[in-house]
Design a protein around this nucleic acid. Structure first.
Lengths: 265, 265
DNA sequence: GTCATACCTGTCATTTCTGACAGTATCCCC
DNA sequence: GGGGATACTGTCAGAAATGACAGGTATGAC
């Protein structure tokens, strides 16, 4: 790998300022369609000095079959190949977000991982380079209902050339990625019924909370000062609303989708 | 509330550039003690044009009694009052992070919420102002093991005066908050035994994953091609390692602490 | 060769959960 | 005054989980 000497954070390569950043934040707050959001990302991508972008979000509606949403500014051929080969399973950039990292990832810093995995990862990245995605940087976002997303910017330039842009754009794109995610949430929520989120009552959430703390129905009944039957009743209703088949799944969904969060008492 | 006209993102108030930002990122990566991290935050706070800072992290070791870690650059009197009055329960800024928001919160944009709550929130914020925390901005961080943190910067200036600084510092502080969090994780991990994280085997995680998906032991046994007894065995071992008392709690902990995450198959 | 680790399997008694039957009371909105 | 949402309570049978007893193999490290 060529190691550039472009160590200074000279932002002459990029055309992003606090002013443009704020304009983009406002634009993201206004965006009402996928097309608008696509245009916004493309604009950001261009200003940051990159050629391609991809925004992808994953919703944990189910742990084994999560829902995904994509706004792609990648070359079509690469994106098709990506889906065809199910590269979602080995993409190290996506893993960075899956692992709930909170800092950006310079693709040059990707750790291919151990033994058998590493070869596939290396091959994946070299194939990406063949399609024009040589260098890049990815920004993870973690959403309020347990979803996680990633905004990637890529260029055909090698890392030595791109490094300055990567570093200089980081603060702005990191901040913007949160707003873009908020916009995407808003937009997809309108269009997709699978995002309809049932509302749970206070009691239902309380019962789920104590169930998640390992309490039996009998325990919870005594904690809340109600009968065991009533606890069962609330948990049954919650399970029905959440469309799950038992207590463990109800608790898993309540935790992963943010129905119950760490409390202070 | 005084509404300032300082709508332009003039960054003359702040002394933060991409260069300083990168230096601070490197410093955060190097930081090895709470004192170093405190100094780093104080430096950042000063450069961003604010008077006080607070970094707080919450670890969901338990949902009802989470572990907290604080690096306080708030006035002592206020911080003592905050803890004494258990303001952690009504602090709307903390709630912003608890709700897993991913964008910064300008304290001026705080929504006091509905009816009875709103008065307490308003009173809380006016009391904060009495102690010199008139305006501020908070940056939520979501960590890889389910923890969430918040970095707040505050000043005695009113919002009209502070607005420019808040806006101008956002990109830099948002980015840095992630690195500061990583550093805090690293530092606290060394000093605190309660952060020791048991490691689960692949099979244990698989069994937990399917349990979280609502599968019974019998179902999981057939999915994995092993006997029901073995599934019970793995779940028993996992529960022991995680120090939980039943399946629901095991699943809750596995999900909230990131042992199991949405999969792609 | 022993130790540790991961992985695997069986039975039995007891507890807990789940689903289906049955209800009552309160509150708010229209 | 009715409809809907919320909260609450009861019993019973069957399914599932839990805990404690018992055991096995394969692997790699020292």
């Amino acid at each position: 790998m060529s190691k550039g000497q472009c160590l200074t954070g000279h932002d002459s390569d990029i055309d992003l300022s606090i002013g443009t950043c704020n304009e983009l934040i406002e634009a993201a707050k206004q965006a009402g369609s996928v097309e608008e959001l696509h245009a916004l990302c493309a604009f950001l991508c261009d200003r940051a000095g990159f050629d391609y972008f991809l925004y992808g979000a994953v919703l944990p509606v189910s742990l084994v079959r999560p829902q995904t949403f994509i706004i792609s500014g990648y070359p079509n051929e690469w994106w098709e190949r990506y889906q065809e080969c199910n590269y979602i399973r080995i993409d190290p950039v996506l893993r960075h977000s899956t692992e709930r990292q909170s800092v950006p990832l310079d693709w040059n810093d990707v750790d291919p991982g151990a033994h058998s995995e590493s070869n596939r990862v290396r091959q994946f990245m070299s194939e990406a380079a063949d399609f024009g995605l040589t260098s890049g940087v990815s920004f993870p976002v973690h959403g309020r209902e347990g979803e996680y997303a990633i905004l990637s910017l890529a260029t055909g330039d090698d890392h030595g050339q791109a490094r300055g842009r990567i570093i200089a754009s980081m603060p702005f794109v990191q901040l913007l990625s949160g707003y873009i995610h908020e916009a995407a949430r808003r937009i997809f929520e309108h269009g997709d019924v699978t995002l309809a989120r049932p509302s749970l009552t206070e009691r239902e959430k309380e019962c789920l909370l104590w169930a998640a703390e390992g309490k039996t129905s009998w325990d919870t009944a005594h904690i809340l000062g109600i009968s065991e039957r009533t606890v069962l009743f609330h948990l049954h209703n919650a399970s029905h609303k959440l469309d799950v088949s038992n207590r463990a799944q109800a608790v898993a969904r309540a935790v992963s989708q943010g129905y119950i969060t760490p409390q202070f008492r």
